[in-house]
Simulated scan of single mutants.
Amino acid sequence: MDVHGTVAEGFEPVGEAFAANFDRLGDRGAAVAVYRDGHKVVDLWGGTKDVDGPAPWERGTAQIVRSATKGVAAAVLLLLHQRGELDLDAPVGAYWPEYKTAGKERTRVRDLLAHRAGVPVLERPLTPEQAADSVLGAAAVAAQPPVWEPGTDHGYHAQTYSWLTGELVLRVTGRPIGEWIAREMAEPAGADLWVGLPERETGRAGRVGQTEAPRSAGALRTRPKRSVAEAYADPGSLTRRAFAAISPLPDENDPDYRAAALPASNGIATADGLARFYAALIGEVDGGRRLFTPATMELARAEHSFGPDRVLVVNTRFGLGYMLHGSASPLLGPGSFGHPGRGGALGFADPESGIAFGYVTNGFRTSVTADPRAQALIGAVRASLTSLA
């Protein structure tokens, strides 16, 4: 496999791990980017643009990143708080009156961000076409009774996070969340990422699909605990119902789906765009603007949820909208914060080392969080930092 791009001196292990992902872990097409203290030190890509086609991956190829989009959506709410436009301790209903129904009256904005809102499921799932309609999605989640008392427990809001965050941003700013992300975060940071792919960018986005690792790499694959598999197999479980809030699951290659703004699941980004976004959260990038103040950064990564996740079953750790370093989502170090996309993509920042990381792929796996390809790259970044110390 030909790998293209550049690696700064001292980060050669990342290049070796990236090439090994193709040789040993069966990557079809992928890219990785790493920033250190606001400067790019890794920018690599290889394989094919489409999971099912021969066209080569090029500089600037973008892919859907699934739930890695949630980290981008969370930044919108935190920036609104930073600007004094949103109170994290206020009830969601203070901004969105229709949400004050069925036992959700005391749900705080911070509960929504930390997956403590209690509405990971919809009693009446939405079709992909209905889900793309932000008005219908917001109405559905506003009418939904919570499955636990908001604020008392946590469980991953796999799909409903789209309408919870999107509607709240609309009520506070009067602007759709995808537009806000483009103008207030992506453009200032110079990051190639979109929630609602513009027609002018459709040619950059590759086709994605499900792939499996080679059998020889079986020892490196993530095997979910039996309890997770059993929960997902049970149609009545919160696990299955949370992911099936959109049913049937959307065709992720459908142009209409990609053009919709679903900030829980359908962001499209380059690896550089994802890494550059996280670099801008923790510092200046190439001398440009920093997005989070130090205080907001600490809010993002302060633990708000820990323990058995009522949806994912395993123990999870969440800050305000971000997964934190732990067994469910191993990142670079104890202070890292970010978000994976189910089966592949990952973006995160580690303020202590100044590292920001982005990995995107066109081949999704059955893993939910700790994808072995991304984990191999994280290990290589850690080894590089050790050698440079």
Rank of each mutant, 00 (worst) to 15 (best):
W163P: 00
L164D: 03
T165G: 01
T165H: 04
G166D: 13
G166Y: 00
E167Y: 00
E167M: 00
L168E: 08
L170A: 15
L170T: 03
L170V: 00
L170K: 14
R171S: 05
V172Q: 12
G174C: 01
R175S: 12
I177E: 06
G178N: 02
G178V: 06
G178L: 03
E179S: 13
W180T: 00
I181V: 15
I181Y: 04
R183S: 12
E184R: 03
E184N: 04
M185P: 06
M185H: 09
A186I: 05
E187A: 14
W194G: 02
W194P: 01
W194S: 05
V195K: 07
V195W: 09
L197Y: 04
P198R: 07
P198N: 10
P198K: 08
E201S: 03
T202V: 13
A205M: 13
R207N: 11
V208M: 11
G209Q: 07
T211A: 11
E212D: 11
E212Y: 06
A213M: 13
A213G: 04
R215I: 04
R215T: 09
S216L: 09
A217S: 09
A217Q: 09
A217I: 01
G218S: 10
A219P: 04
A219Y: 11
A219S: 13
A219N: 08
A219G: 15
L220F: 10
L220T: 01
R221S: 02
R221V: 12
R221Q: 11
T222F: 06
R223L: 10
R223E: 14
K225E: 15
R226T: 05
R226Q: 15
S227Y: 01
V228N: 03
V228A: 07
A229Q: 14
A231C: 07
A231V: 01
Y232S: 11
P235N: 11
G236M: 06
S237E: 10
S237G: 11
L238M: 12
L238G: 01
R240A: 14
R241I: 09
F243V: 15
A244I: 00
A244Q: 14
A245K: 06
I246N: 05
I246A: 04
S247T: 15
S247N: 15
P248T: 08
P248L: 08
D251L: 09
E252Y: 13
E252D: 14
N253S: 10
N253D: 07
N253F: 07
N253A: 06
D254N: 13
D254K: 04
D254L: 05
D256I: 05
Y257D: 05
Y257C: 08
